[in-house]
């Protein structure tokens, strides 16, 4: 190596992709409903309800457009405790990522449970949405808390 070795320069480097996403005919009503503190799913032909809604049936690929409101309470089907949240995660204190099957839905979806302590988490526990004071139509308009 070179005898003139100097300490390498370092600098912060932020790489950012400023995406905007067009929501389409199914997710647009879903996010719009979040602003009104309501949660929508989509009904498949066999009557099962998917939350969050999808535009197409995952088995038959047929178009889906029958939106139905589900409860903002449900059951934790699986969870993982985040003991040391990172800067860009949704809460700045320990929380759980959980799959929550809402009452009226047939699928579980991934969201945050603000449970305070890992000891408060249990598969099968009931949770309910705690809505932000001001909702804007974002998935972060609510988190779940133990019911």
């Amino acid at each position: 190596m070179s005898p003139t070795l100097e300490k390498a320069l370092t600098a912060p480097h932020k790489l950012e992709y400023t995406y905007k996403r067009s929501l389409g005919p199914v997710l647009s009503p879903f996010f719009t409903a979040l602003r009104d503190r309501r949660i929508l799913g989509v009904k498949r032909r066999d009557g099962r309800v998917m939350v969050p809604p999808k535009e197409y049936d995952p088995d038959t690929s047929e178009s889906l457009d029958e939106l139905v409101e589900v409860s903002d309470e449900g059951v934790v089907t699986s969870w993982s405790w985040v003991a040391t949240p990172r800067r860009q995660q949704p809460l700045d204190r320990p929380f759980a990522y959980a799959l929550v099957k809402l009452d009226g839905a047939d699928t579980a979806f991934l969201h945050v449970v603000d449970a305070g302590d890992e000891g408060n988490m249990e598969t099968g526990m009931r949770v309910k949405a705690r809505w932000a004071d001001e909702t804007t139509g974002m998935i972060t308009d609510f988190v779940f808390v133990p019911a």
Binding site: K14, Y19, S28, F31, R35
Partner: peptide
């Protein structure tokens, strides 16, 4: 609500090397 922002940000600490 027809559009949402979904930015992705990667924060590096870059070393330029010798």
């Amino acid at each position: 609500i027809a559009v949402i922002r979904t930015p992705i940000s990667l924060d590096y600490h870059y070393s330029a090397g010798q």
